[in-house]
Design a protein around this nucleic acid. Sequence first.
DNA 1: ACAAAAGTGTTTCGGCTACACCCATGC
DNA 2: GCATGGGTGTAGCCGAAACACTTTTGT
Lengths: 226, 226
Amino acid sequence: MEQTYQHARQLVAVDCIIFGYEDADLKVVAFQRKLNPGRGAWSLVGGWVNHDESVEEAAQRVLHEITGLENIFLEQVEVFSKIDRDPGDRVISVAFYAFMRIGQQDKKLVEEYGAHWFSLRELPELVFDHQDMLDKALDKLRRKASYQLVGSELLPDRFTLLQLRKLYEAIYQRELDPGNFRKKVLGLGILRQLSSKDMSESKKGAYYFKFKKAGTGQNMERIIKL
Amino acid sequence: MEQTYQHARQLVAVDCIIFGYEDADLKVVAFQRKLNPGRGAWSLVGGWVNHDESVEEAAQRVLHEITGLENIFLEQVEVFSKIDRDPGDRVISVAFYAFMRIGQQDKKLVEEYGAHWFSLRELPELVFDHQDMLDKALDKLRRKASYQLVGSELLPDRFTLLQLRKLYEAIYQRELDPGNFRKKVLGLGILRQLSSKDMSESKKGAYYFKFKKAGTGQNMERIIKL
DNA sequence: ACAAAAGTGTTTCGGCTACACCCATGC
DNA sequence: GCATGGGTGTAGCCGAAACACTTTTGT
């Protein structure tokens, strides 16, 4: 099924904004670019799209190569295709954002590639249009998190409502009322309370929660007003 | 600046969901495909992406070729890239939706290409994954229209609030309260009332309105609850 | 005793909904 | 006079926001 159509072909890439959560802060992965042009500059994680894979599969493959993880949560952001966005050649890039737990094992793998986790406010200047990609990704993440509870891919397996609230505060860069947040989130009915408590963050101890059937429960109720 | 990178190159296309509004109904353009495979099947408007244009520019060019119009309102929907989505070859397609006033002149141009305006409910089966594209586009349109007043590209230059409300009813396939819709929309402060009235739709006559400074005024207030 | 987070309850306020109601006019 | 859409007003409901208050326990 090759070459049915005769037309100019393009280099197609994927670039991934990898979000992580640590120390009550939203972070992203950037690494020092190894190719010219722009060698050494900070860049998002990216790679080429092959003939035998969709852009989603390409993104999964690229992320797997770097982190060793499979089935990473991915969301398409937008296509970036200005003809001179990459000074080296005409490259059409599909941006994705991904969620990843920041842990020791990933950290090591990530750092083998010269990659680092940056807090959003400490991010260095990024190469090409990668800052635009990040801005759009953040925008999309905020929109999504406003009507769907996110976090199962960023937080530990079990977590307290304090952790979840701090994550939301990091995403929106503003404080949320603890009582109201609790009522809202529990009212969604998509968290299951465990019998064990976390004793590290408070004297009284806070119950752990888990997401029921991760991924489903797309309940589209408004969580926070943008 | 060519061939800096050595990697497989892909056919990249754009496909456009062209929305129009007529007879209190939302419509889309489909036409009979001229290429094999799928020749004769109903298809969205599409074309290849050249080396010297972004995907947005490609979409504008394709729409211009068919309608003669320039500067059409366009919004990126999503990339469709399953490897077998087009049985003829591996084609990565970027879907867009566009707004277009349905008028005599466009109609003629459109029909020269074997294209027709279809009401959403009367749409024939579409080729490949074009129905998926349409579904996603509708989804995105509904989301956008819920927090930004749309319509300046679909309605005539000046329009009554009845027309605007009917457009929204067509988009969401449900009835909206006339009084509440009026208050909500006028409260946004992005419409300018003209001194002339439309006498065709009611005995009393309804004032015409225009969008202030079309395009700006992105005021992000919620218009309707999804 | 105090601080700090957990967890629950309460009050207030604003916006949305669902109407009621008058206006203007062609039939 | 009556039907139809234009246009305005309003009572009631519901959810969000703000915040008071009680619990628990480490220091």
